[in-house]
């Protein structure tokens, strides 16, 4: 479905310098430095996958999305999506994809949503029957009925995002690119948007590629993540795989019947202790969870135990740090 092999992209960026003298100088002569936005990016995506494409700001996420949606031409490398090379057959290719830029609207600001939809129907030359069936499906799943008659500028951000996503699906694309679809949304709207992405993926088999900074989006949606940093591919695989590969720290919280004697578990560091509750941090490379539990139950009468893995956010931050050091 999607094959990306050896993508390279270098930008020339004007050096910005401080100071008035430098600024004046820059008017006449500019120094450029080359920034490698993408270095040898390769991956492939099967039809019907939901892939989370993540990385810190400036990692090259948007550049990759732009290359894959036919906006940018890379310096070298292959990208084949449904048999098209996006930047070569732009017009015939983009009919098959939908793109949502979370921060920019594709709807006409001052007119009711339905007018934008109808214009998009004409832009994409969607046959009337197909348009009607898509529209009624989208209206139903996204609960848009009341929004269609309202000018876009009067919609809330969450409502608008639902309309944006619907707008990008009117022409039944096979691939949907979502660039930060939940940015700025409240918890309720986030959940609504996520649920919708799942529905559309399950019912229509749309392949979804989404970028986000919200790790709960990834946890809720993506069976697979591609992590990039400084233009390089750092990880490609399941979230679970990432966890087991990198996350060896676990936090065990134990509640027990009052016991004033301090606990001592070999191999586990105590994070907090009270007569009723204690928290330990362990490294699963050094000690197995069951050993800790066995040691615990021999010392106190356990009432409740919770074991928490490292939050995914911490994991990502740790990964970024590691790679910036190397």
């Amino acid at each position: 479905m999607i094959t990306v092999r050896g993508l390279h992209k270098t930008f020339r960026v004007a050096k910005r310098s401080t100071g008035l003298g430098q600024a004046v100088k820059a008017l006449f002569h500019r120094e450029y430095k080359a920034i490698e936005a993408l270095k040898d990016i390769s991956f492939s995506i099967e039809p019907g996958e939901i892939v989370g494409y993540i990385g810190p700001n400036g990692a090259g996420k948007s550049t990759t999305i732009k290359v894959m949606s036919g906006i940018l031409v890379p310096d070298s490398g292959i990208c084949s999506i449904m048999g098209y090379t996006p930047w070569e057959q732009r017009v015939s290719y983009v009919k098959h994809i939908g793109v949502v830029f979370g921060q920019r609207s594709q709807l006409w600001w001052d007119v009711p949503v339905i007018d934008s939809f109808e214009l998009l129907r004409d832009i994409y030359k969607v046959p009337e029957t197909e348009y009607q069936s898509n529209l009624s499906l989208l209206t139903e799943t996204l609960d848009l009925q009341e929004l269609l008659g309202i000018p876009v500028r009067q919609l809330s951000l969450g409502q608008r995002m639902r309309c944006e996503i619907a707008a990008s699906l009117l022409h039944s694309p096979s691939v949907l690119f979502l660039d930060e679809p939940t940015i700025g949304l409240d918890a309720m709207s986030k959940i609504a948007v996520r649920r919708f992405i799942q529905t559309i993926n399950a019912e229509r088999g749309v392949t979804v590629i989404l970028t986000t900074h919200d790790m709960s989006d990834i946890e809720a949606l993506a069976s697979r993540i591609i992590l990039i940093g400084k233009g390089r591919l750092l990880h490609d695989g399941s979230l679970q795989g990432l966890r087991s590969q990198f996350s060896t720290r676990k936090v065990i919280t134990a509640d027990y019947r009052t016991c004033h004697r301090p606990l001592a578990i070999p191999g586990a560091a105590i994070l907090s202790w009270s007569p009723e509750r204690a928290q330990f941090s362990i490294n699963t490379g050094e000690i197995v969870v069951s050993e800790v539990l066995a040691a615990l139950s021999s010392q106190v009468e356990l009432l409740d135990v919770t074991i928490d893995g490292q939050p995914i956010e911490d994991l990502i931050i740790q990964l970024y740090k590691e790679h910036q050091l190397s």
Binding site: K66, S69, G70, I71, R90, V91, S92, V94, K95, I97, V99, F101, R104, Q106, I123, Y124, K125
Partner: peptide, 14 residues
Amino acid sequence: GQGEFDRVLVRPRG
């Protein structure tokens, strides 16, 4: 400046 031209490029028209 606002990046709206990207939108133009992802639509199947001239």
